[in-house]
Computed example of a mutant assay.
Amino acid sequence: MDNKEDLIKHAIQGLLRIAHLYARIEAMPIPVDNDNTVSTREAHTIQAIGDEETNNVTQVANHFGITKSAASQLVAKLEKRGFLHKRPAAHSNKEFQLSLTELGWCAFRAHEHFHGNDFIELVNSLSAFPISQIATLSVLMETLGGVMEKRLSQHSKP
């Protein structure tokens, strides 16, 4: 690379390549049992609910950086397919509590198996880097995410 701008452009191209690869992975079906598969996106939602990181539609939306409408559609689809239970929340007439069904737990375990090795490989690979480089990567990812969130918010305005 000749200069800082060229290096930045190269890094952005690398990020775009990774984003396209990730989109392809997100579309891959994960076998749950003989009759059911879930997309990686669906499996991540199931994982978040099973890990109790999210237990309502608003938390699903916030967790994944999507609109409440998109989260609601995803939750409704998973409920219809038998992966989730959606029950009225005790504290609110408008909110629903989410929990996994037995089939949802099967998908949870299938996702852990499917992606568990990838996660372990990433952690092991990144562990070879000094903490300062990992911290820099984290700050860069936050910066890139902020630019993307700004672009999406501008796009969604009337």
Rank of each mutant, 00 (worst) to 15 (best):
E26H: 11
L137T: 10
L78S: 04
S39M: 06
S138E: 03
D33A: 09
L74C: 08
A71K: 02
H85E: 05
S127V: 06
D33M: 05
A71G: 02
H115Q: 10
K80T: 07
T136G: 01
D118P: 00
I25M: 13
D35T: 10
T143F: 02
R151Q: 05
L98D: 03
L15N: 13
F114I: 01
N124S: 09
Q73F: 08
E79I: 06
R109H: 12
T67C: 05
Q59M: 12
L152P: 00
R41F: 14
D2M: 14
Q154T: 08
Q133K: 00
A19R: 10
T37G: 10
I120V: 10
L122D: 06
Y22Q: 14
H20I: 13
P29Q: 06
L15E: 14
R87F: 06
G65N: 08
E26D: 15
H10R: 14
D35E: 12
I46K: 01
F129A: 05
M1Q: 14
A43S: 10
H91S: 12
D118G: 01
M141G: 04
K94D: 13
N62Y: 04
E26M: 14
E102C: 04
G50K: 03
K4D: 14
E142N: 07
A61P: 03
E52M: 05
S99E: 11
S138K: 02
L100V: 05
K4W: 15
H63Y: 12
A27R: 12
A23V: 07
N55D: 09
C106A: 14
I46G: 09
M28T: 13
